[in-house]
Amino acid sequence: MYNLKNLIDRYRRVTILSHLRPDGDTIGTALGIYAILKKYKKSVEVVNADRDIPIYLDFLPNFSKIKSKIDFDDSLVICCDGGSTELFGFDLNGRDILNIDHHRSNTNYGIVNIVKANCVSASQVAFEVFGEEFELDKDSATCFYTSLVSDTQYFRTNNMTKEVFDVSLAMIAYDIDISEVAYNLNQRKSLSSLRILGTTLDSLELHCGGKISTMIITKMNIKKSGAKYGDLMGIVDHGISLATVNISIVFIELDSLVRVSLRSKKDINISTLARYYGGGGHTNASGFEMKIDNIEIFLKDLIKKIEEMGLLNGKKKKNI
């Protein structure tokens, strides 16, 4: 027991944050906690600094309550699914934070840190710890289940265990509509998402005897396709799906930085590479952002670092 009720009761109001460039896990976790605390009769706001929130998540209960500005200045801040405060887009210096996450690279920035790296989603963490002390219902369970299946790509990631299926069944037991979740996550893609996928696949190259795949999403192609950031999610997984590929890399040109998304297979801990460049994530799914003047030149250095770490051979390296 984390005595969350005692912590939350010390504050008159609560602010719930999801991270920038939001995905299903961070939004679903935030909305799940929002539903729980509203039922508990707390004064709660749910906030995301990014105005580009994936529209396919608009079926989630209380989605319309998400706003882009923090109005409470005396609240407990609950951060969902972020390894550091910089990922949330707000100045959180001096704020009391409850940190809910599942990333091993989490910096433990809260006054209370509930970080479970063995969980497959932040929503699994929230479902387990809030479920011990608060009343859950169909709304909160729908949000948490959506997060879980989104982050595991419908139970297709390498971190699946019997416990994950047990947790998902416990969520489903709240009589959630799993067919509605499946429809919204899988059958509401935008035309622009297919356009940007096509141009990105055209850029696919193989390296190191086919063990590494790379793709580049340029600002020009993003503009031409009309794609939003949410439309880019999942593209990196096309590279890792190739039979010979052990590491997939996608470069995404942003306004001033380049986002580098990384995927790997089996025991290749790609998070060590992400942390080397100031990022983080999970064993098989990580990333980082940095200023890159020339992607082709940087890629050569990146591949050299991969080889130095022994990652192509599945060599397990200690965290760096």
Rank of each mutant, 00 (worst) to 15 (best):
A126R: 09
G314R: 09
L257N: 13
G226Y: 09
M309H: 02
A117I: 03
K116D: 07
I217H: 06
R51P: 03
V250A: 12
C80A: 08
L17D: 13
G279R: 12
A122Q: 11
V129N: 06
S84K: 05
G278S: 10
S286C: 08
S179Y: 12
I172E: 10
N158L: 15
F72H: 11
H103A: 04
L20K: 01
S193D: 11
I320W: 06
F134L: 02
L20S: 06
F251M: 01
E135Y: 13
R10H: 10
F72I: 12
Q187Y: 01
T142N: 01
N108E: 15
S241P: 07
L60C: 05
S18I: 02
G198E: 15
K5Y: 14
N284H: 01
A227T: 06
D255L: 10
N319W: 13
G314S: 03
S286F: 01
E135K: 13
N158R: 15
I33E: 03
I176W: 06
I212E: 07
D293E: 05
T218L: 09
K223A: 13
R195S: 14
V125L: 10
G279H: 03
S261N: 14
G278W: 00
L257F: 14
T142L: 04
R259K: 14
D91Y: 09
Y276R: 15
I36P: 05
S264V: 08
S123G: 13
T199W: 15
F59M: 02
D166I: 15
L185K: 06
S147P: 05
N319Y: 04
G198Y: 15
G279C: 07
D139T: 12
Y109K: 11
K41E: 15
S264N: 06
D58H: 12
K266M: 04
K69E: 15
F251A: 04
I303V: 07
Y145H: 02
E133N: 06
A182Y: 14
N269D: 14
V46L: 03
L148D: 01
V167Y: 03
R13V: 03
L136S: 14
D50Y: 01
I97E: 07
N118S: 09
L87P: 05
S256I: 03
E289L: 15
L204A: 14
Y109C: 12
T244P: 10
V167W: 03
N3R: 11
I178G: 00
C80S: 04
I222C: 10
G287H: 04
N284D: 04
S203C: 14
S256H: 07
N113T: 00
N106L: 01
G280C: 06
L302Y: 13
I114S: 02
K42T: 03
V181E: 00
I178T: 02
L4C: 01
L4P: 00
M171P: 13
F59C: 01
K211R: 12
A285K: 12
G279L: 08
G239L: 08
I97C: 03
L76R: 11
L254N: 04
T272K: 08
I55S: 12
K42D: 04
D9R: 15
T29P: 05
D71W: 02
E132V: 02
G287F: 04
L37T: 07
S190L: 07
K224T: 15
E180I: 12
C208T: 09
A49F: 01
